[in-house]
Design a protein around this nucleic acid. Structure first.
Length: 676
RNA sequence: GCGCUCGUAGCUCAGCUGGAUAGAGCAACGGAUUUCUAAUCCGUAGGUCGCAGGUUCGAAUCCUGCCGGGCGUGCCA
């Protein structure tokens, strides 16, 4: 079905055009106040100004010229020139029935011209657990992807994971430590399980570790010293089979390597390493222990056969991390589990030099203080000088600006996705607001480079910070970052307690499912319900409250409807038959009418949420629906209603349930439950 | 300094390209349950929309200035 507001807009605009001799938008909106009608057209006042006539009189003439009797009661002119529209019962009924007939899409059409939309979101880092900082990007991005997909566009999700940086040497080292602990120190407690000594004994302790490290390295030799063929390679070969159990160990070992790195700053310890040279021979050299992880990173980034173990280790770590992320995505109901949706920094690695070469060749990038920079117009630094977008550091290394440029070019020029080639019409980045300047410069640079065709939209969808109840960034009591898993587990735990209290007689398995839906749903919904631009205060108590604009409230409304459906047969009500028999309906009760009028606005709510990538427009709408339903529920009995009014009430229940289910489950990725 | 962003009821927040008397929830107070899940509903009270100008028939919304918070601002991401 055509969008309701579009239909009204068209009719009123047509009348304005007839009266004024020129087109002006009718600006049809849902009425601010029910007493003014259902919709109001605000455009006449602006049109009156343009044609220099009295707005009230113009409105009268527009009303006279308007052909809308099939849709609305006779329109009224009010105030300075508003036109108030009240939907005819017959038209309202027609819309409701149209929604009812279209089970899959609730009467909402797909976009006439489907676009290719890239949504870049979540972006976790390798070898780290997802934490609360990833929550907003993941779920807001997911909602945007779902919205565009539902609207009929081709959505390409891009999880731009942080899998290529200076920390990878450390991660590989951590993996190696695990391997050595398992093979050479079976009887001892691994170092990464030990508490570190205090300052006094630290030097001795750390020296022991380096010595052991050196000895281990020498011991792991089969063909030549330190080739890692004895232990490390077999370890890596079997890694996949054990990845699940190794994940927590890796996290610990990685932390431990970080500690070592800190501890060895300035200690001037050296350690032996090897490097393969041209003729196939190894050369050995001593490097400072401090720089070991950087050295491994260097080897990794060199690529090639000689550094195969580093690459293998790296890909093992990537695999294990993505398994962890997939679990979180599954729990969150984020549609980002498929490997094709992940394309991280490393995928662009070999494209980076060319990006710099191209930009230099076009004269866009220049050298400044040793770094290669683009200076897009309009960006200034503290001194008022042009602000650089640095694409290559003075030491020759590339940075995230370079990677982002490569990724953007890939998205604009040709994406390989499910065996087809796409070019993005729209690229949406979902990251926190602190990166706004970076993306402005990124987009400006891409435009300077001529990569962005006319009509292509680059968009940075920002969001604010999650705050604790003290109003400061959300942290654990000890000041650490909160793991996403822990956060969700706690939400589920709290929800379990509520379910247990409210509905102890449900089967255990069902209670588990309800607690998960309610707990995770509460966290997601609370985030969605906030204007994404503002920082928001995270509170379990508020989001799990059953009152107010919360997931449980929505889920409860849905469960009540399902309960009516279950009880129908016991009261000799054949819902399907009654729904099928509806040809027209009268909605006598105000609560019925209010609910009905809200239901036909679903298309508008989705359009608004999509236009500005604001999930809170959708939650706001769904909350209105749920509230209207709750009022209806208390004043209008359904199953025991008169045979004349019952079919309409059943229809309202059915549409409410489907709207809530669709909005919550399909668009927000929040499960609804049959009982709670 | 400059840029971005926020400032709305005691608290947490909505407010959809400017639209009529600014809305929810919590907290407070009062009411509703022999009837489909009271995890609900109804009512009362609570606001100089940070401040001051400006544009407009009309401003929480747009513009300017100021005040206050957060973030960013050349080799981290």
């Amino acid at each position: 079905m055509k969008k309701l507001t579009d239909i009204l807009e068209e009719r009123v605009s047509q009348a304005i055009k007839e009266v004024c001799g020129q087109a002006y938008p009718a600006m049809v909106r849902a009425a601010a106040d029910g007493r003014f009608g259902d919709y109001q057209a605000n455009g006449v006042m602006a049109a009156a100004k343009a044609v220099k006539s009295n707005p009230r009189q113009l409105a009268e003439r527009v009303v006279a010229a308007m052909e809308i009797a099939d849709l609305c009661e006779p329109p009224e002119v009010a105030g300075p020139g508003f036109i108030n529209l009240r939907l005819k019962d017959s038209f309202l009924a027609e819309r409701l029935l149209g929604m009812h007939r279209d089970a899959a899409r609730l009467g909402i059409d797909k976009a006439e011209t489907p676009k290719t939309v890239v949504v870049d979101y979540s972006g976790p880092n390798i070898a780290k657990e997802m934490h609360v900082g990833h929550l907003r990007s993941t779920i807001i991005g997911d909602c945007i992807a779902r919205l565009y997909e539902y609207a009929g566009h081709t959505v390409i999700r891009q999880n731009h994971i942080g899998d290529w940086g200076t920390q990878f040497g450390k991660v590989i080292l951590a993996l190696w430590h695990i391997c050595m602990a398992e093979n050479l120190h079976k009887t001892e407690k691994p170092y990464y399980d030990l508490n570190l000594p205090d300052d006094q004994n630290a030097t001795v302790f750390f020296n022991q570790i380096v010595n052991r490290h050196q000895n281990d390295w020498c011991a792991d030799s089969k063909f030549v010293e330190g080739d890692g063929e004895l232990y490390f390679r077999p370890f890596l070969d079997e890694f996949s089979l054990r990845s699940k159990t190794l994940w927590p160990v890796l996290l610990k070992a990685y932390q431990y390597v970080n500690l070592l790195d800190e501890a060895f700053k300035g200690m001037k310890r050296t350690i032996k390493t090897r490097e393969k040279i041209e003729n196939g021979q190894f050369v050995y050299k001593e490097i400072s222990y401090e720089s070991l992880s950087r050295y491994i990173t260097y080897m990794l980034q060199q690529g090639g056969q000689d550094n195969e173990q580093e690459r293998k280790a790296w890909s093992c770590v990537k695999e294990i991390t993505m398994q962890h992320c997939a679990e979180i995505y599954k729990l969150l109901n984020a549609t980002l589990e498929h490997p094709r949706d992940t394309r991280g920094e490393s995928d662009y690695n070999d494209k980076l030099p060319q990006i710099v070469i191209d930009l230099k060749a076009r004269g866009l990038a220049t050298e400044s203080d040793g770094a290669i920079c683009v200076f897009p117009e309009g960006f200034k630094n503290k001194e008022g000088d042009p602000l650089p977008f640095i694409i290559q550091k003075s030491d020759g290394a590339f940075l995230y600006a370079t990677t982002d440029l490569a990724a953007l070019r890939y998205r604009l020029h040709g994406i390989e996705y499910q065996g087809q080639n796409y070019q993005a019409d729209r690229v949406i980045y979902v990251t926190d607001a602190r990166q706004a300047l970076h993306f402005q410069m990124l987009f400006a640079t891409a435009k300077l480079a001529g990569w962005v065709k006319d009509g292509v939209v680059l968009e940075h969808v920002t969001f604010g910070t999650m705050l604790g109840e003290d109003g400061r960034p959300f942290k654990t009591r000890t000041g650490g970052t909160v793991k996403l898993k822990d956060l969700l587990d706690e939400a589920i735990e709290r929800a379990t307690a509520v379910v247990e209290k409210k509905n102890p007689d449900l089967p255990a398995e069902q209670k588990v499912n309800i607690a998960k839906a309610v707990g995770v749903g509460a966290v997601k919904y609370a985030d969605y319900a906030n204007n994404r631009n503002s920082d928001y205060v995270f509170s379990f108590d508020k989001m799990l409250a059953m009152e107010g604009n919360t997931a449980p409230y929505m889920q409860y409304a849905y469960a009540r409807i399902k309960s009516i459906e279950r009880k129908a047969t016991g009261k000799d009500v054949d819902i399907e038959k009654e729904l099928a028999g509806i040809a027209s309906m009268t909605l006598a009760e105000p609560a019925e009418k209010d609910l009905a009028k809200l239901l036909v606005r679903y298309d508008q709510a989705i359009a608004a949420a999509m236009a500005e990538c604001r999930p809170n427009y959708l939650t706001g709408y769904l909350y209105d629906v749920a509230q209207a339903f709750s009022r209806f529920y208390t004043t209008c009995p359904v199953l025991t209603a008169d045979p004349e009014s019952r079919p309409a009430r059943l229809l309202l229940c059915d549409l409410t349930a489907r709207t809530i289910r669709h909005g919550m489950s399909e668009l927000l990725g929040i499960e609804v439950v049959e009982q709670m």
